[in-house]
Design a protein around this nucleic acid. Structure first.
Length: 485
RNA sequence: GGCGCGUUGGUGAAGUGGUUCAACACACUGCCCUCUCAAGGCAGCAUUCACGGGUUCGAACCCCGUACGCGUCACCA
């Protein structure tokens, strides 16, 4: 049987990294099987928490990440609708709730919130842990149905056996067994007629033929309850794959609430979706091979549920930054230029060869957003401290700099075509003639025409981009400054 | 508090009884290369696998406790 997995987010805001990783793993589990299907289901049963536009963010994120779903609200499929509120309207949950009740797996409950609260207070005052003891369990089905028919307010609660144990097998955490008496008789259908997650996820996963349930490990403690439902219906239980949390630090999960990085935030900061995906794949999962850079396709080959870890992994932006740099550097120049052109245009008003600038920046920037900051000297040539000519490693000081600069000046004046090749050929004759090291002449030139201690690219590359006129103007200015010092 | 789960370096992690008493990667430090920076190359960085017992000829890997952490106990998912 082909594998079917689902990503089932609630449209309650931005897509955070932990969520995205769950989506990724669900995708990978499905796509590892060549006939596997990955579906998207929108879980909007909590009408109070809906956030406008959140669904679009989900679509957009999956699209940006190239996590294509085979079925979903926007692409259709044979198991729709894929939005839970629409399924409510079709009466799906209601019908199954009635069936469950008839099978003894659930019951009507007419208690009001007050009774629940009173019980809670009482039990907690006694130092016990709270577990709702529902008097409505004693009501006969006939009577309950009559009360429902009379329009009385009700919810449907799970009926949990009073003794015994329930277990489930998780692919990553192994077999987990819990005592039934610790299980809560959770609400399955709310008084507004909407199902809770506890019910909807089971019904929908079954109806949609989900074979592998991939979700965060916060569901570990409630999964046994879901098996009670599957068992009551005599349905096949899916494989469970619970993932360890993605942490912000050792104590806190990454969450949008704390303003932690969402996928969009990361994108805005200049990280590539491919790099983000690659990085988060590594949080909680380790490949068999000794390598870390994987495209999405390679990930689907390499992925193996058995190698998902069990303990939380801290999100380390430093490593993501490194990985992002690897992706950026590996791109061909044309694609790279396409990507960074807006950033360069944004940073440089002057008429310089943007592509040449992209080229020198490509080997140095780890994120897109740091690019403009590297380029300020193109537009603005500022006076700088001649102390900068003192460089121990380059064996330079203002005196040797002046000597090098004055010797370079006629050469730079004589060249008309400022191609890198020309500049290189001519300029490199200088060190030998002056009996200096390459760095002793090229370092001062670079400084003299940029005014910056550090720049992307060396003297030759930058002179070529600046062009003859600008290069000479800056050179002369710097020579003057040096003479007057 | 009950229940569940977890604990290898600053971080991600490999490793599941003896040729690895701890791979690889990020970060960090140093060196090399080099026209700066970056990239790249090399080296260093856990005498130790939360702690305490036990099993065993032998344990990070098996068992039992303890501690700490996280999750859950909603008409949220």
């Amino acid at each position: 049987m082909a594998i079917r997995t689902r990503f089932a987010p609630s449209p309650t805001g931005y897509m955070h990294i932990g969520n995205l990783r769950t989506a990724l793993y669900a995708y990978l589990v499905a796509k590892k099987d060549k006939d596997g299907k990955f579906l998207l289901r929108i879980e909007d049963t909590d009408q109070g928490r809906l956030v406008e536009g959140a669904t679009d963010i989900i679509y957009q994120t999956l699209k940006d990440c190239n996590l294509k779903h085979d079925e979903g609200p926007d692409v259709g499929g044979d198991y729709g609708p894929y939005v839970q509120s629409e399924r409510v309207n079709e009466g799906i949950y209601h019908d199954y709730a009635v069936k469950l009740i008839k099978r003894g797996g659930a019951h009507y409950c007419f208690c009001d919130q007050e009774l629940v609260d009173t019980q809670r207070e009482l039990q907690e005052a006694r130092g016990e842990s709270f577990k709702f003891d529902d008097p409505c369990k004693k009501i006969s089905l006939e009577e309950a149905e009559k009360r429902v028919a009379n329009g009385e307010n009700y919810v449907v609660r799970l009926t949990v056996p009073e003794s015994g144990t329930t277990y489930f097998d998780d692919e990553v955490y192994g077999r987990i067994t819990v005592d039934n008496e610790t299980l809560d008789e959770s609400i399955l259908i709310k008084s507004d007629g909407f199902p809770t997650y506890n019910f909807a996820n089971v019904i929908d996963d079954h109806l949609m033929g989900i074979t592998d349930v991939v979700r965060g490990n916060e569901y570990l403690s409630s999964s046994a309850k879901y098996n009670l439902i599957y068992n009551a219906f005599e349905w096949d239980i899916p494989r469970y794959i619970h993932c360890p949390p993605v942490m912000k630090d050792e104590h806190n999960k990454l969450s949008k609430r704390n303003g932690d990085a969402s996928f969009q935030d990361l994108q805005d900061k200049g990280y590539l979706p491919e790099a983000i995906l690659n990085y988060i794949a590594l949080l909680g999962w380790a490949p068999e091979e000794d390598r870390e850079i994987y495209s999405l396709e390679e990930l689907t080959q390499a992925f193996n549920v058995k190698r998902i870890g069990t303990s939380g992994a801290i999100f380390d932006i430093e490593k993501l930054t490194w990985l992002n740099g690897m992706y950026l550097r590996a791109m061909d120049l044309d694609s790279y230029y396409n990507l960074v052109e807006p950033y360069i245009i944004d940073a440089i008003k002057g008429n310089f060869d943007k592509k040449a600038i992209a080229k020198i920046v490509q080997q140095r920037a780890n994120t897109l957003i740091e690019i403009p900051g590297m380029l300020g000297f193109f537009d603005e040539f500022k006076d700088f401290d001649i102390e900068l000519y003192n460089n121990k490693k380059m064996k330079t000081n203002p005196e040797v700099a002046l000597k090098a600069l004055e010797a370079a000046k006629p050469i730079l004046e004589s060249i008309n075509d400022y191609s890198e090749e020309n500049l290189h050929n001519e300029l490199l004759k200088l060190p030998e003639a002056l009996e200096m090291k390459n760095g002793q002449v090229l370092f001062p030139i670079r400084l003299a025409i940029t005014g910056e201690q550090f720049t992307p690219g060396g003297a030759i590359e930058i002179a070529s981009i600046l062009g003859k006129e600008e290069t000479l103007a800056r050179l002369n200015k710097s020579i003057e400054a040096l003479k007057n010092a």
